[in-house]
């Protein structure tokens, strides 16, 4: 309770500083709108449905791309950890492509898929897959060897070993890998939505982009605010409880 109160005070102070700077009129309100006008924009956009519409379009793209990314990345990561050949080929490819900022996929996606949903998905998937591959691979490699030895003496091998020992043993790493993958997917999607103009759906990135085109700074900041909020909520509501559970059960990362 006390922590919540302190945090609230912190954010109220931030808001107050913002207000004071606006009052001082150092920058024109076109460049730095007041908290009130951003709030008014958000309220209006929420009322007329644009915000909800854009958020649902964006979240849908994110979920689809992210899930496809995991469905590809997870098995690939298991393969790179299991086979030297796959490690030397797919593993190196993943390592290289992971360093490529996902914005760099946009020109290629546009030329291959045109201004379509597919281009959008492609960028998100490319942004997700490689980091999931690497996190999965790291996870499996970090399993204490004693687990595998114990399992072997009890007669566990092949598919049984993978499903009953290696996957559960690496679960904490897999989850942090998925969290990282989610962060990459989110960044990729925002980049894609800002750069790729398509008619099939108007996402948060587009709102942000048109905010700039229209010189509507209240919209720009308001949408940024929503993007941050979605990221924060996902972390707090989806990942944090899973991580807490795993840490407790695995006895790791206790504070």
């Amino acid at each position: 309770m006390k922590r919540a109160l302190l945090a609230t005070i912190f954010f109220l102070i931030l808001l107050a500083i913002w207000s004071v700077i606006v009052q001082l009129k150092i920058w024109s309100p076109i460049l730095l709108p007041s908290p009130q006008s951003v709030g008014e924009y958000l309220l209006g956009a929420a009322r007329d449905g644009t915000l909800l519409q854009a958020t649902s379009v964006t979240v849908r793209r994110l979920l689809v791309g992210y899930l496809i990314g995991i469905a590809i990345g997870l098995p690939l990561g298991l393969l790179t950890s299991a086979s030297k050949f796959v490690e030397d080929t797919i593993g190196v490819l993943a390592l290289g492509l992971q360093t490529l900022p996902s914005v760099c996929w946009i020109p290629l996606a546009l030329l291959w898929f045109g201004q379509t949903e597919s281009a959008m998905l492609f960028v998100v998937i490319m942004g997700t897959v490689w980091s999931v591959v690497i996190a999965t691979d790291t996870g499996v490699r970090n399993i204490p060897p004693i687990y595998a030895r114990a399992a072997r003496t009890m007669g566990s091998r092949g598919l049984h070993k993978w499903t009953k020992v290696i996957l559960p043993a690496s679960l904490p790493y897999l989850v942090s890998g998925m969290k990282q993958g989610w962060a990459f997917a989110w960044r990729s999607l925002m980049a894609a939505e800002i750069y790729v103009t398509i008619l099939t759906g108007f996402g948060l990135g587009h709102l942000l982009h048109y905010g700039r085109e229209l010189h509507a700074m209240d919209q720009v900041i308001g949408v940024m605010f929503v993007i941050v909020l979605i990221g924060l909520l996902t972390d707090k509501i989806v990942f944090a409880p899973i991580e807490r559970f795993l840490h407790r059960r695995w006895g790791t990362g206790l504070r």
């Binding site: 114990a150 072997r152 003496t153 009890m154 566990s156 059960r249």
Partner: peptide, 30 residues
């Protein structure tokens, strides 16, 4: 390795994702 010769290690090597019964059941299920 085979289940006629089972090993007890210095560290317990128990599986943290299973409870006590689950750990004891692990070899039995095989």
């Amino acid at each position: 390795p085979g289940r006629h010769r089972l090993v007890m290690f210095q560290e317990s090597a128990l599986f943290p994702w299973l409870d006590v019964t689950g750990n004891v059941m692990f070899g039995l299920k095989l």
